[in-house]
Amino acid sequence: MPEDFNPGCARPTGGPVGEAPAEKTETPSEITPKEIQNMIKVGQKAPDFSAPAYFKGKFVNVNLSEYLGKWVVLCFYPGDFTFV
């Protein structure tokens, strides 16, 4: 039977269970460099992006570059309804 859980401020997620898949053995020539997450630095240009949004009753597409000339606060958060 599925078990109850109490929702916390982290978005509830799942993932694969059981044995981990056998690791691929790669010859050195096949090894690709691991993707490195960008390290954001102050003083650098904010990476531009386009994203769909809900804004005042409508669905719109927003480009960050539309806000050049204005001060922008860009906020990320784990998920809607996550309490804080």
Partner: peptide, 16 residues
């Protein structure tokens, strides 16, 4: 699988 609580202040030139 989520974005963490990051907040960026970006100036009128698009600089963080």
């Amino acid at each position: 699988g989520v974005d963490t609580r990051g907040r960026f202040i970006i100036d009128p030139d698009g600089v963080i």
